[in-house]
């Protein structure tokens, strides 16, 4: 539980952080909440030579609605989302927030840190997939917005270039009736998901499904969009039968491993159960 030696700096401004990251190149790692990075360093799973602590950059600490989106800054903690009225604009975001780890981690850990970490057992990227979020990325030479599907590359791998960092994440808030949910099976509070399913349904005026979003946690090498299930739902009138078919398609999109959290067949089944229940919950909250 003793990390290897490392250098540390804590710039006061975003420009300072970006300059430090540009200079350090591959040696530098951003420290935000540290709820994944610090344990990984203690276990010697990560050994960054330099940490760039962004906790003093207060401009990154926000949750706000703007231009039809809910935007969460790089220093917003999980518990800030739990407590935020603005976050209630997105069911799938606000229902996931209380499921993140335990109260200690939620007080310290950040949404964007979790998004950037790309741990397939992390909850937020499934939520971002269901909500079709955009990740705001900045480097010393400029900024860009990356769709979540392009941001997630693989197991613990994102599409940031050297010297870039995540400054925020934006979730579009559809104008029509929309509902969402996050369902998580965990062994105990503070555990990663055994299986998690994020769902969002946007309804058209006639009650049919305009767009569906389904993101799966911990059942693939990365958080996964259940595209076939989403396509199956789009344009259709919601029904129990339709949800059951979509649930089966979501389960087919999963490829879980048998491990101490449980058997692969069972996990695949839980994906189906949670997709079915999640869609029903999303529909109910869209209608309310």
């Amino acid at each position: 539980m003793y990390p290897p030696a490392f250098e540390y700096q804590a710039p006061d401004t975003l420009e300072g952080a970006l300059a430090a990251l540009a200079e350090l190149g591959d040696e530098g790692r951003v420290l935000a909440g540290g709820q994944s990075l610090i344990p990984m360093m203690k276990f010697h799973l990560a050994a960054p030579a330099h940490l760039v602590d962004i906790n003093r950059i207060s401009e990154l600490s926000y949750i706000r609605r703007s231009n039809g989106s809910l935007c969460i800054g790089a220093l917003a903690r999980h518990n800030d989302v739990v407590r935020s009225d603005d976050a209630k604009a997105s069911d799938v975001v606000s229902s996931a927030a209380p499921w993140i780890s335990d109260p200690l981690v939620r007080n310290r850990g950040t949404v964007c840190g979790s998004v950037a970490h790309c741990d397939p057992e992390g909850d937020w990227n499934s939520v971002m997939l269901a909500a079709r979020a955009e990740v705001m990325v900045q480097g010393s030479s400029g900024s860009r917005r990356v769709g979540i599907d392009d941001f997630i590359v693989s197991y613990f791998t994102n599409s940031l270039e050297t010297g870039e960092m995540v400054t925020g994440v934006c979730v579009p808030i559809p104008s029509g009736a929309t509902g969402g949910s996050y369902m998580k099976l965990e062994r105990k509070i503070g555990d990663y998901a055994t299986v998690g399913v994020a769902t969002q349904l946007e309804l058209a005026d006639d009650g049919s499904i305009a767009q569906a979003g389904i993101g799966l946690t911990a059942v693939n090498y990365q958080n996964t969009r259940a595209s076939a299930a989403e396509d199956m739902l789009a344009g259709e009138m919601p029904s129990d039968e339709l949800f059951a078919e979509a649930a089966a398609a979501a389960a087919s999109a999963s490829d879980p491993q048998t491990d101490v959290r449980g058997d692969a067949d069972w996990k695949r089944n839980v994906v189906a159960v949670f997709t079915r229940r999640g869609l029903a919950q999303a529909l109910a909250s869209a209608g309310s």
Partner: peptide
Amino acid sequence: CIGSNFMDYLVPTAWE
């Protein structure tokens, strides 16, 4: 050994 830390060896909290 699978269970070499409190992420893998589960000790219930007041919550569970």
